[in-house]
Write a protein that binds this DNA or RNA. Sequence first.
DNA 1: CGTCGGTTTGATCTAGTTCAACCGCCGTGG
DNA 2: CCACGGCGGTTGAACTAGATCAAACCGACG
Lengths: 230, 230
Amino acid sequence: MAQFRTFTSEELRFVSSFKRGELVAEPGTVILAEGAHSAQLFTLLSGWAFRFKTLEDGRRQILNYCLPGDLVGLQGSVIGAMEHSVEALSAAVLCVFQRDRLAELFRNHPGLGFDVTWLASREERMLDENLLSVGRRSAIERAAYLVAFLYQRASSVGLVEQKALLIPITQQHVADTLGLSIVHTNKTLRKLIDRRLIRWHDRACEVLDPAGLMEIAGWTGLPEARRPLI
Amino acid sequence: MAQFRTFTSEELRFVSSFKRGELVAEPGTVILAEGAHSAQLFTLLSGWAFRFKTLEDGRRQILNYCLPGDLVGLQGSVIGAMEHSVEALSAAVLCVFQRDRLAELFRNHPGLGFDVTWLASREERMLDENLLSVGRRSAIERAAYLVAFLYQRASSVGLVEQKALLIPITQQHVADTLGLSIVHTNKTLRKLIDRRLIRWHDRACEVLDPAGLMEIAGWTGLPEARRPLI
DNA sequence: CGTCGGTTTGATCTAGTTCAACCGCCGTGG
DNA sequence: CCACGGCGGTTGAACTAGATCAAACCGACG
């Protein structure tokens, strides 16, 4: 796909050998659990997932979403233990890597090592934006931002077909992403629905007007760059 | 210092040659500005700084704080443009690197390349925790968490002398970190002051009881690991 | 046919915002 | 030397965005 950078054949050979297998996950499957010590490293090949943390009393915060091409579990692989969990939103397929060969990747394929850092920086950038949103935007701005953000990300990996996108989330997921209650989230989404910016389906959000959402959120979108894929 | 990993002499030689100079910043100096295209890469040698983003209408969100040993401007160096700004909180000294030699670092010193990724993952972990805080903790929990968090970070780089620490921030900084108004931030900090957990000075917060703060926040602290320094 | 997860709606409540005023300190300019 | 303005901090009063409580609906599924 055009949005990914091209690789040398050696890099491709290494990545193939780095791959240990595939994992198929059902919606709701916990792919990585907080506290896991010898966590795996994955690339999401297809489907949607999300990263989250919870407090003792069960309050949950969704940190970010994972789309195809995203590295999953890097924190655990680099630092040691997982400080967050990852759960599948839809049916998903993941490529499982040999975590202990990460050092080898850096040693023998500096270009790939740089790519890993690039992806980590990209994740950081998304978190910055999410934090700005949760900290400083109003409920309707946050909701509009979230949908526009997911639309853009899905679009950049070719998930938008003839302008239509169904995001496989419940309103509970939206609430836990925005830091709002479900009731208020429902009322806020209703406003977006009434303005014909989105449509709500069973466990899914259909995006009708990404530009209108970006307008409400006061968000101009992620600067898109050619990205690496591992 | 014991908390940093040891390096080979070659690595040290490279890092020295990688260094281009030093930058001395006064409190309030903008070190890196959002939108800057050819941003520099730094390591903070001494002092405090913070990363932030703002919305068009001026609402500001502080994303994280920078303490000695932190890499500053990595996002800009890896991806290209800065999506956030960085400002000095105290007088600060930064080591300036040659951003365009970052690829060389990855190529010739894979161990250092891995370290850069390690630091990026650590930043991501801190952002995760901050996002959980802003999204799901109450005002007093957030405030307690923030102070405990900064105490722990300062402590891990030896900034806590005979158990005393002054964090060089104003209540406006606290408000912009927690996603609260200044008025409510003031009232919330007052509760912490009345409970003798902190003391407030002119433009500074003195930490009296880190354990008590962690208790209120329901936070057990960052798992500390031997960290790299570049 | 009951139950359960997801969604919806209204009523009531409260955590946090906004507005407004004031204090102390410090640097500046007349 | 003093008046002043601005910044950081403080406090009270009024207000509101969003939380909580409660109840009901709806489709899927066993």
